[in-house]
Each structure stands twice: as structure tokens, then as C-alpha cells.
Design a protein around this nucleic acid. Structure first.
Lengths: 297, 297
DNA sequence: ACAGATTCATAATTTAAAGTTATGATTAAC
DNA sequence: GTTAATCATAACTTTAAATTATGAATCTGT
């Protein structure tokens, strides 16, 4: 079915005149007549009847005109939505993130963003850094926020968002609480570790290998972001965690930091996106918000 | 916006392939590529991204594809409805009728028709014969059922549906009940008449004029179809009415017929339509039902 | 790793659609 | 009865949409 013919007929029906429809559409009157004739032939219905020196819609014409109005309305609606999408007013932001940013950074960022763009829909998938990069390359996400590694990657661009300090923490009442000491001493402590490798613990293990210090021993293996800190607070042992994870509990006096003078690592948290193709406008807005600059993404 | 381009893109989105979409649309692959390119340019959005040796929809593409699916669905819906309309399965029958057929004939006819065509919508306007003809000529109705006159009319065709007998009726207990007598005697009775001229009473008045008999005298003027018979039954006087109006009351013994030997008129009831243009299919079906033949309307 | 097949994009060309101007028939208006 | 308005038709031009042919990139299977 020729939908443009329907749109032309819609104008004829609304104006009640072939000539007026032609003026509105900025085409000639015979062009409108031809469209109506073609549509009429295609549908097998007589749409117009001569009425005086003008025209009048037949019953079939009235019925088809009602449908034509629906098409015109749908077209307007699509146009409106596409404009909103192009300008970045609405759309879907698909984000892949590792657990630290997914739990400690993105909730706040997305909340702020939502105030400026209320019609945004965010889809957040949490996984490890490899999952996140795979999601980007498989077009399952448009942005990734990855904590713990800032390696270059084929086809991906990245940008440092912040450098998260890694802290050794112990229960608040622990003898080492608040002290300064060397890694070799700290490592003697029993550690609470994440079951699935966390970026922080990976960094610690490789640091020990480099320094020739023995590997830390796990007194407890837990799963989940909050659980490590909770179990430290409960007295199970020390842990090596992101300052973001530890900050709140430390402020509440549940755990305490230990200053290990020869192990001051930071955990880079980077924004990653596909290097080649442009971000959806709404995702670009979000990226500009969290990087705080007007770089083209 | 080029809606056909959207339809083409819809096929690409559904098939996930330019080539498969081209096969489905029975056009060449470069034609599909060109449509997508044009649409992309028109909307100012990148819709497709190369993915391996195929393509993948971008976020914008997904969003536009969702709209394209709506357009495709609407097109199917319109096609379905237009087919139903063309075949006469559905549609609107606009009927203009005079009061007698509107009250005594059309209710039954429309009820029967509705059983065969449940999705029909009937619009019935009641008026006098002139109103009904005007409604036809002004395209406000497609069919008219007119009682009482069967004159030719410019631009209108007609067909006799039935010949309704006109009866003189009196209250059941009236001395004339069931008798045979001449018009000159009958006319002495006081008559119940319709306020607005009914076809039956018009015929009676002109008959009296032709026969040189004096005009009947009105003992009561009422308005409405049923009211005349009711007031006769109540004993107000005689009346000259359609057999259709009187039949039920006569069968219930509320009124009685008087056989006036020299005044046996019939009231032709005709179906009328515009001579020049074809009836809407559904109206043609209805016309065939009530005429009981397969004449082309 | 390489030959062959698949998929999409581009270029050149043809075909079909859509648009134009000019003009005629019909009807309304003065 | 003349004039103006409206739509339909015809002849022609322009634009859009299709075609075939071909090239670049990528996957498949040996």
C-alpha cells in the first residue's frame, strides 16, 4: 500500500478540497488528483465523488480518511520521538560495569542524570572487566565503567574517571588500627577475601609476588561487595578493599584503616566505549556528565 | 518522512539482514541499501553498523525499528479493514426513512441483517419523504425507505418494496366495527389525525377532494406513530392508518377495521438510492436483503 | 593460511513514479 | 450570460527507485 498516497488523501479529506490539499502539500493540483486516483485504484474503492465544483468523500472515502488520519498521527509521533532521541532527551543508556562502580558510583550518577533527563531509561549489567568489554564489543552496552584495570584494548577508547585508593582495613578494635607499618608485617594478618576475584585483591597478590613477600592467607572467603567490609567489622580479619567500599564503615567507626607505607596502590576507574562508532546521544550526554567535560564521544 | 523507507527498514530489522529483506520485498539488495541510507540521512541517525559480514542495528536503529514495526502493523490493520469494507463485511449503513418504515419495517430488517453481518453499524434518520430524498442527494444517507409516495425523482432510483394497505379503523366497540360501507358514510365519523401530515391522511384528503366528498373532521390531533392507534382504541374516533400500524392493535381486539368499499388505497413503500454512484458494499448487501434479489445497486 | 562463499556498499544505468504546465469540462456566483 | 473556481486529463519533465555489475570485508571449511 502506498502510504504517501494515504497522507496526500488525508490532506484532501481534512481540507475537503483537492486544490487546498495541493497548496498545503506544496505540490500541484494534478499531482494530488493523480495520488487520489492511484490510491482509489489500489484499494478498489471510489474515494471521492464530484459535488458541485468541488468534491465530497464517499462512504469509502470517509472510512479510508479515518485510517489516513491514523497514519498521519503515527508519523507525527515517530518524528517527535526521533527528534527527542537525536537530541538526547530520551533514549536508553546501556551500561556495563564492574561491581565497584556499579554499586558505589553509578547509583548516584544515574540519580543525578535522571533529574536532568527524566525520560531516560538506564540498563545496567554488572560483571567483571572482561564481561564489560565483551558487552561493548558485542553492542550489548554503549558505555562501560570498569574498575581496577586501565589497559588499552583493541577497538575501545577509555578515559580515567577517578583513582580510587586501596585501603588495608581491620576491625575497629584491632591492635593495628590506625598504625603505620610495612607490607611484610601487614601480610601476616588473616585476610577476608572475595570469593570471586576482586580487583583490589588481584592487585595485592601481584604486589606480594613482585616484592617477594609471601601471599596473604584467607581466613574467610565471602561473596558480594558489602560482605567483605561487614565481616571485617565483625572481627574476622583484615581486608584490602577500595576506599569507596570502606569509607562509610570507617566513618561509622566499624572498621579502621592501616597505613601500609610501602603499598599505596590506587585502583583506576575508567569509562570505556567503542572507539569507532558514535555513542547514542543520550549516552554521550551521560558520558559528558560523569567526565565533567565537553569532549566528543 | 518517507514511510516506505520505514517499511523497508522494518524488514531489515526483522530479518537482521539487508539481503534477506531484499528477498522478502522482492527487490534487489542495493535498493534496500539505498532505502536505509536515505532514511538514515533523513532522520539524521546511523541506523546500521557493520557487524562481521552482516549488519547490526545501532541503538538508534533499534528505536527506529520499533516505530517501523508500528507503521507496518498499522498498514496491515488498514488493509484488513479496507478489505472488510470492500467485501461489505463491515461498514456503516446510513438510512433515511419516513416514520412508518422506520418504526415498523426497519427494526426487523436491521435485526436480521445484523445476524449475518455483526460488525455493521447502522445509522437511521427519520423524517418525511422530502427530508429522506434530500439526505440522499446531500450524501447524508446511502439508502432511503420511503412510505406513501413513489414519484420519480431526478438523480434517484427507486424500487417498490411492498404495498401497504390503508385501513379505516374504529374503536373495537364502535357500531361500525367490521361493517362494509361507502366513503361518504365513513367520512361522517370524527377522525383522529396526526399533527404532522401522515402519508395515509394525505391520501385520504386528496381522495375526498377527487370524489367530491367532504373533508373528514378532526376530533383530535396527535403526534407520533403509535399515538393515533392508541387514541382510536381509547374511543376518540376513527382513523385512516397503515395496516402495519393497525395490525397488532386489531389482533389484540383493541380496534376494529371498517371495510370502506370505494376507498381501497395502498401505500407504496419504496427503497430509494442515488442513481449515479454505486452504493457502499455493505449498503448494497442490505438492499439486496430487503428487496430479496441480486440486482446490482 | 588460503580459496571460496557470503554480505553489504558503491557506481553506472534503466525504469518507473511523481511532479510540472497547459487545457478542458462542469458548476457556482455575480 | 459571463466570469471565476474546481477538478480531471494529457503531454511532458524531473526525480526517485529500481536494476546489473562490481568491489571490499569477513566468515567458512579445508
Amino acid at each position: 500500500m502506498n502510504l504517501y498516497g494515504l497522507i496526500v488523501f488525508h490532506h484532501v479529506a481534512v481540507m475537503g478540497s483537492v486544490t487546498k490539499a495541493a497548496e498545503e502539500l506544496r505540490i500541484s493540483q494534478p499531482a494530488v488528483t493523480a495520488h487520489v486516483r492511484n490510491l482509489s485504484h489500489e484499494l478498489g474503492l471510489t474515494l471521492l465523488a464530484p459535488r458541485g465544483r468541488g468534491i465530497l468523500l464517499t462512504a469509502a472515502g470517509e472510512r479510508v480518511a479515518a485510517h489516513a488520519a491514523r497514519v498521519a498521527a503515527l508519523e507525527r509521533d515517530i518524528k517527535r520521538d526521533v527528534d527527542a532521541f537525536r537530541s538526547g532527551e530520551s533514549g536508553v543508556i546501556r551500561i556495563a560495569a564492574t561491581s565497584l562502580p556499579a554499586n558505589f558510583l553509578l547509583p548516584g550518577w544515574l540519580m543525578t542524570f535522571r533529574e536532568a533527563y527524566p525520560s531516560v531509561v538506564a540498563k545496567l549489567v554488572t560483571g567483571n572487566a572482561r564481561d564489560a568489554r565483551r558487552a561493548l564489543l558485542h553492542y550489548e552496552a554503549d558505555l562501560a565503567v570498569i574498575g581496577g584495570s586501565s589497559e588499552e584494548f583493541q577497538g575501545l577508547s577509555h578515559r580515567l574517571l577517578l583513582e580510587d585508593e586501596l585501603w588495608f582495613v581491620v576491625p575497629a578494635a584491632h591492635p593495628l588500627a590506625g598504625l603505620s607499618l610495612a607490607l611484610s608485617s601487614m601480610i601476616e594478618q588473616p585476610f577476608v577475601m572475595r570469593e570471586t576475584g576482586s580487583a583490589a585483591m588481584d592487585r595485592l597478590l601481584s604486589l606480594c609476588r613482585v616484592r617477594g613477600v609471601r601471599q596473604p592467607t584467607a581466613v574467610l572467603k565471602v561473596d558480594g561487595v558489602q560482605e567483605t567490609v561487614r565481616h571485617v567489622a565483625a572481627g574476622f580479619g583484615a581486608a584490602y578493599v577500595s576506599s569507596l567500599e570502606a569509607k562509610d564503615a570507617a566513618a561509622r567507626g566499624e572498621i579502621a584503616r592501616v597505613d601500609v607505607t610501602d603499598a599505596k596502590l590506587v585502583n583506576p576507574i575508567v569509562l570505556v566505549w567503542r572507539a569507532d562508532d558514535p555513542l547514542p546521544p543520550i549516552a554521550a550526554h551521560f558520558a559528558r556528565q560523569i567526565t565533567g567535560d565537553g569532549t566528543a564521544f
